[in-house]
């Protein structure tokens, strides 16, 4: 069990963010602890994806602070945040995230290659993760030739390959049927547990959220965070 008394790995404090006249985040605060699986739930348009993007340093909030391992993300330059995302974070999205021209193996190797790892070494590591997620057989295929479930597992492998400390997953099973979705979640969470990565899981499906250790509900740009019961 994760000790809630520890300092959080990633924390959002009093975030506000508006897109034009739409207020997406309205004093949102959240803590993510190392190694935990946190489900971000809430109705569509509640701001949960926006909160995820802010936590990952993709979006910068209008006001408020996001701190990762004690570093203030909003004080970083764009390239520093990019480097952080390359090395410390991993991402899984609902769909359309694999580069269609690259083979699945090359897709998985991509984050390592971006971080400067040599091609051979990167693809070796990628092959290991494809096997771990039981999709070694699609390694040489392009994403278009793999099924939806296989594609998501490839995406999960890609998120894990750089051994990130936080993985952000935005509706990772949203485009899959229940059976495929369950399998992806099981493999995903097990692999994340093994690497010790924290997972921030945006979902509106309670059964997917049930893979988390804790949930936070976003409503109208505000977070109701469930604390760990001791």
């Amino acid at each position: 069990m994760v000790n809630s008394a520890n300092d959080p790995l990633l924390a959002a404090d009093d975030l506000h963010l508006s897109f034009g006249s739409t207020q997406a985040l309205n004093s949102a605060s959240l803590r993510v602890y190392a190694g935990e699986v946190l489900a971000l739930m809430g109705p569509s348009g509640s701001g949960k994806s926006t909160l995820l993007h802010c936590l990952a340093g993709i979006l910068t909030p209008d006001t408020g602070r996001v701190t990762y391992a004690g570093r203030d993300l909003s004080a970083m330059s764009d390239s520093e945040r990019s480097a952080l995302r390359r090395t410390e974070f991993g991402f899984v999205f609902q769909f359309g995230q694999l580069v269609p021209e690259l083979t699945c193996l090359e897709n998985v190797a991509l984050p390592l290659r971006l971080a400067g790892v040599g091609r051979r070494q990167a693809q070796g590591a990628a092959a290991g993760w494809l096997a771990r997620l039981e999709v070694a057989d699609v390694a040489q295929k392009r994403p278009g030739q793999a099924s939806g479930g296989q594609g998501q597992r490839v995406a999960v492998a890609r998120a894990l390959v750089s051994r990130p400390r936080v993985i952000f997953a935005d509706e990772p099973t949203g485009a899959l049927d229940s059976l495929n979705g369950e399998r992806v979640m099981q493999l995903f969470i097990a692999a994340a547990r093994d690497t010790g990565a924290a997972v921030v899981l945006v979902t509106h499906e309670p059964r997917v959220a049930a893979y988390s250790g804790r949930e936070a509900v976003v409503r109208d740009g505000r977070v109701r965070e469930q604390e760990y019961a001791l």
Partner: peptide, 24 residues
């Protein structure tokens, strides 16, 4: 009323987590 719902959600999810663990 939101508190009522949140409390219930937490309880439901707690149960669902347990079932998910057993299932796995």
């Amino acid at each position: 009323a939101a508190d009522v719902l949140d409390a219930q959600r937490a309880e439901h999810l707690r149960l669902m987590r347990e079932l998910t663990r057993r299932k796995t």
